[in-house]
Amino acid sequence: MPHIVTDNCQSCRFTDCVSHCPVECFHEDDERLYINPDVCVDCGACIPACPVQAIYDVVDMPEDKEPWIKVNAERSKNLPVIMSKQEPLPTAERRRTELGL
């Protein structure tokens, strides 16, 4: 019952989440991050760290986010792991404003 990254992370990719994570379970592509459900320990440390509220605990999330469980599981398997905080994408601040966060 892991945590997942959802749509809010799109074209944003602030990586504050990564620096709060005690294990290495975040994987990245050009758009966003994905959590490897087999490695995530469900500690919840990343949730408050994410400035755009993109991360949910699967046990406790809105129903419309459910498709993201599969996306995280599948995408994380084939993408490189990201181990430390990175520069946000250039679009990041705009995305945050768009989301009203």
Binding site: H20, V41, D42, C43, G44, A45
Partner: peptide, 20 residues
């Protein structure tokens, strides 16, 4: 409840058991 960010081992995070 949250982990104390100043504590060098806790580092702001708790665990699956204690996070709520």
């Amino acid at each position: 409840v949250r982990g104390n960010p100043d504590h060098p081992m806790t580092r702001g995070g708790l665990c699956v058991k204690l996070k709520d």
